[in-house]
Design a binder for these strands. Structure first.
Length: 584
RNA sequence: GCGCUGGUGGUCUAGUGGUAGGACAUGAGCUUCCCAAGCUCAUAGCCCGGGUUCAAUUCCCGGCCAGCGCACCA
């Protein structure tokens, strides 16, 4: 990772964000708590618009569904998902140099012990002492140092008293996975289908940093796209013209900063991107980032290095934006295979499979049993049910076992022998019209706060108008907190009244409007420039006579006259990208 | 979590062992008829707790928060 000396952009953005109400430290009146931010009026509007653009792109236009699941989640979910183990780190600090290390890694790297991660801390401490392990950084002895457990999940208690243990979700994804049995019904068992969620996640980060970039509570937008690995791919021709700035593993290992610029088809053909759906979502992601104000000259997709890859992921690409010389992770597009649903299928009562019909029904021979319980019962007593189950399992596994006169099965270490004729064993031809599969998951997961922050940093510019400096946020009109500022040139002679009427009309047309009649007109323009308002309408004396107002463009500061009767329609068109200011 | 540096109106900042000054911003008024102009007035501040002291915003200790580095994490 590139690390520059401190550059002013992050400070500029944070200062502007504080002053103008985009975001600021939460609970400051009580000293605050690290890693928690409040979005102010401008920021909440910007964030909402960015989320809405995300929904439009990844839910509505893709024909996917959105759900809203709880943030408090019972413990067994995370036992199944692996978060209880994976998010639990054991730290040991070197007494000599003060560096902290993952205790389990120190052990696994230096001994034959393989699964230190799942051991209790006292055993880990004992292992370190027994093997006389030393600090990987300075070589100082670690024996006798205490090992402290740290789980990144916030825990809580569900219900009164001791209650049941629960956790605040560290990602919204588990909600989509745990509700999968109902969601697949809702999707009428048709693969592929996508389930999306926009919501908060919680991670008790060891050290929150960099304003919105690493917080303990944050909004993410995740899409879990469920596919049949043998099924059809996406319609790549719809993104054929999208050029992806790709930074694959080999380029990173060559320490190069050269990006490949390939379309999804090219990236697939050259084997740079492994999966069609991943390629497709990379293209859609790029389009979305551009739409919400991320500068495409400071944007790339970086492939995860092998060691970086989560154990369940077969391929993963991060969308990254550059701020102050650092690359900020904005999104991860991961091919998660069937890991998540398999885990839940294993742990939960419900089935996480989807029935996929074959094109043509198949005829298969299937061995089955139908044991005479009237025989098994008196013979084996309480074990009879288990014996019947064991027979059924054996028939499916090894039909040759039923060739003789007797069949022997093992139940809890006890051998039970049953005459074959009592088992009801038979091999029959059956018609199989399909099979139950566990879908694979392709997951584009976005950090909304990071997108908001990057859009702000990339939109900010200090330029000059008529020799006077100004700060301007060149946010896309679609996501800008306010679409139009309405000003009377002077607040007298009826101009204010007329301007208020126009502001009300614009609000009635669904526009986000700010009204301002203070100070001189230039000051009001600058105020709106600073929060990224793309257009301003000024009502002057001629407006009263001619029925036309001045429409001023933020980026160029040029102005045009627009009839009052057409202002609302014009502004809606500009906001929605159907009109261009230069064409007015 | 460790280390370094810091915390003064909304923002940026000066300063002091005897409770503080500026700039910008904000509000009111005058002026101003399309890009941060001018004048007058007003609002508003020493992060929290403990200690030393007659007296602490200032010195000491602890905490919280922030930035950076280390570690960790996505």
């Amino acid at each position: 990772m590139t690390c520059w000396l401190r550059s002013p952009m992050s400070e500029t953005v944070s200062e502007l964000a504080r002053r103008r109400g985009f975001f600021f430290q939460a609970s400051e009146a009580y000293g605050g708590a690290a890693g928690f931010y409040t979005y102010g009026p401008e920021g909440a509007a910007l964030k909402r618009n960015i989320e809405d653009a995300w929904r439009d792109r990844f839910v509505t236009r893709e024909g996917n569904m959105e759900i809203d699941s709880p943030t408090v989640t019972p413990e067994p979910v995370f036992q199944a998902s692996g978060h209880l183990d994976d998010f639990d780190d054991m730290l040991v600090e070197c007494p000599d140099c003060g560096e902290s290390h993952r205790a389990d890694h120190v052990i696994e790297d230096n001994t034959d012990v393989e699964d230190a991660e799942s051991m209790p801390t006292d055993e880990v401490e004992a292992l370190i002492a027994d093997h006389e392990l030393v600090c990987p950084a300075c070589g100082g002895p670690l024996a006798g140092q205490s090992v402290t457990g740290f789980n990144l999940m916030f825990d809580t208690t569900i219900g009164p008293g001791d209650g049941d243990p629960g956790y605040l979700r560290p990602e919204t994804a588990q909600g989509m996975f745990t509700e999968f049995p109902r969601l697949k019904e809702y999707a009428r068992n048709q693969l592929p289908f996508g389930v999306a969620q926009v919501g908060t996640g919680y991670r008790n980060e060891i050290s929150p940093r960099n304003a919105l970039l690493r917080t303990r509570e944050f909004t993410m937008a995740e899409l879990e796209f469920f596919v049949d690995p043998a099924g059809d791919g996406p319609a790549l021709d719809r993104v054929a013209d999208v050029e992806l700035p790709l930074y694959p593993v080999d380029a990173q290992q060559a320490a190069g900063e050269e990006y490949l610029r390939l379309t999804p088809q090219e990236a697939l053909a050259e084997g740079v991107v492994g999966g069609e759906w991943v390629a497709y979502f990379l293209a859609r992601s790029k389009q979305w980032f551009e739409r919400v104000g991320v500068d495409m000259d400071r944007f790339r997709f970086r492939q995860h290095l092998p060691g970086e890859l989560a154990h369940y992921a077969s391929d993963c690409w991060d969308a990254e934006g550059e701020v102050d010389g650092d690359w900020v992770e904005l999104e991860g597009v991961a091919s998660r295979t069937d890991y998540d649903l398999s885990k839940h299928d294993e742990h939960a009562d419900d089935s996480f499979t989807v029935f996929q019909a074959y094109d043509e029904p198949k005829t298969v021979e299937r061995a089955s049993v139908d044991p005479e319980m009237s025989y098994l019962g008196p013979e084996f007593g309480g074990a009879a049910g288990d014996v019947a189950d064991a027979l059924a399992a054996l028939a499916a596994r090894d039909r040759a076992a039923f060739d003789g006169d007797e069949v022997t099965v093992d139940v809890d270490g006890e051998a039970y022998t049953v005459p074959t004729e009592r088992t009801g064993f038979e091999v029959a031809e059956e018609t199989e019209s399909g099979r139950h599969i566990i879908p694979h998951v392709v997951e584009p997961a976005f950090g909304i706060g990071r997108a908001v922050y990057t859009a702000l940093a990339h939109s900010y510019e200090a330029d000059e108008v008529d020799g006077e400096p100004r700060d301007v946020l060149r946010l896309p009109a679609e996501v800008a907190p306010t679409t139009v500022g309405v000003f009377p040139l002077m607040d007298k002679d009826g101009l204010g009244e007329r301007a208020r009427e126009i502001a009300a009309e614009l609000r009635a047309a669904g526009l986000a409007v700010t009204y301002d009649d203070s100070g001189n007109i230039g000051r009001r323009y600058r105020r709106q420039d600073e929060v990224g308002t793309p257009y301003c309408v000024t009502v002057d004396y001629e407006a009263l006579e001619e029925g036309a107002v001045t429409l001023r463009d933020r980026d160029t500061t040029t102005q045009v006259r627009v009839p009052i009767a057409e202002v609302a329609e014009t502004l809606v068109g500009l906001r929605d990208g159907e009109l261009r200011f230069e064409a007015l």
